[in-house]
């Protein structure tokens, strides 16, 4: 059995069966990273290129380690080091990579739809590592894997996502994926950060974090991008934090055993208080561990791996 897809571009084109298959495959890869020798020959002779047009540490490192632990030849290209600064188009960059016959390209790009664009024009597998505000499918998959680890299931859980929903690909992909597996999803942010028509995805919209957290099994805090604060979405980080942060006061509204998640990197004291981020409820670091397993599974499934 394999996946019904050739590329991983978004989560809404994944069937529920594919989602479960990816998660189950990831589970089987998890222990490789805990061994003394953290390498299996599964992708020996395969080439994986990490093509990153946006800065990233966590996701890029995770994909790089995933490739290396499966024995793929893995190289990284970052925008500043690439031809982009010389004015090469995305299509030309991809065609040049195609001429070198990679098996998979992991791509992050600031333009929504960049991964879809790439998939239309190349003959290798595209794994979307984030395109603009549109999608970040591996993040959503690792989040679901983490929720399943913590709660033993996803169906019927109440999940609240708090932060800049409008500009967040993590939020979009999680809304799609968690709704698909039966979660009841709410979002919370100032109205300036809620995109048009989001209710049509079946989510509830809250402007008050206490209402949003009421009875939540899982809370996902999104990073407030301090460096991209421009645009007057809210007046000050101080006031944002006062009304929209997860701290020991606001967390009381959620269920006692609420699972606290964050895609990272976290802004301590802005969207999440340090004592919450470091508490036993937090699974922020297990998310990172699962991220590696999810990416190993996807490289294995899409770059032509074999168990032999």
């Amino acid at each position: 059995m394999g996946l019904a897809i050739k590329h991983l571009l978004d989560v809404y084109s994944l069937s529920k069966e594919d989602v479960m298959y990816i998660l189950d495959t990831a589970d089987t890869f998890k222990d490789i990273s805990t061994r003394d020798i953290k390498k299996v020959p599964t992708l020996r002779g395969k080439t994986v290129i990490n093509l990153f047009f946006e800065p990233s540490t966590r996701t890029r490192t995770s994909f790089e380690l995933a490739g290396k632990r499966l024995s793929a030849d893995t190289i990284n290209i970052s925008a500043s080091a690439s031809s982009v600064t010389k004015g090469e188009t995305l299509l030309d960059t991809l065609k040049n990579l195609e001429a070198m016959n990679p098996d998979a390209v992991v791509m992050r790009h600031l333009a929504s739809g960049a991964a879809h664009f790439a998939a239309k024009h190349v003959n290798f597998a595209i794994i979307n590592a984030g395109d603009g505000r549109h999608a970040h499918p591996t993040q959503a998959l690792l989040d679901l894997m983490t929720i399943r680890d913590c709660k033993g299931k996803a169906d019927g859980l109440k999940v609240t996502i708090v932060g800049d929903i409008n500009r967040s690909r993590v939020a979009r992909s999680n809304i799609h994926l968690l709704s698909k597996v039966g979660c009841d999803v709410s979002v919370c942010a100032p109205a300036s950060m809620i995109p048009a028509g989001i209710e049509q995805l079946g989510v509830k919209v809250h402007y008050n974090i206490k209402d949003a957290l009421d009875g939540a099994d899982v809370v996902m805090m999104l990073r407030i991008q301090k460096e991209r604060h421009g645009g007057n979405y809210f007046p000050t980080l101080r006031e944002y934090s006062r009304y929209f942060s997860l701290n020991k006061e606001t967390i009381k509204y959620a269920k006692e055993d609420v699972t606290v998640m964050h895609p990272g990197p976290i802004n301590r004291g802005v969207e999440i208080a340090s004592d919450i981020a470091d508490s036993e409820l937090s699974v922020i670091l297990p998310q990172v561990t699962n991220g590696l397993a999810i990416r190993m599974a996807l490289l294995f499934l899409l770059a032509g791996g074999s168990r032999q």
């Binding site: 929504s112 739809g113 603009g132 505000r133 048009a196 049509q200 995805l201």
Partner: peptide, 15 residues
Amino acid sequence: NEGFTSTLLGLTGIP
């Protein structure tokens, strides 16, 4: 256009 489709596609909308 700003609306549900722009939200789905993650594109900035023009209201």
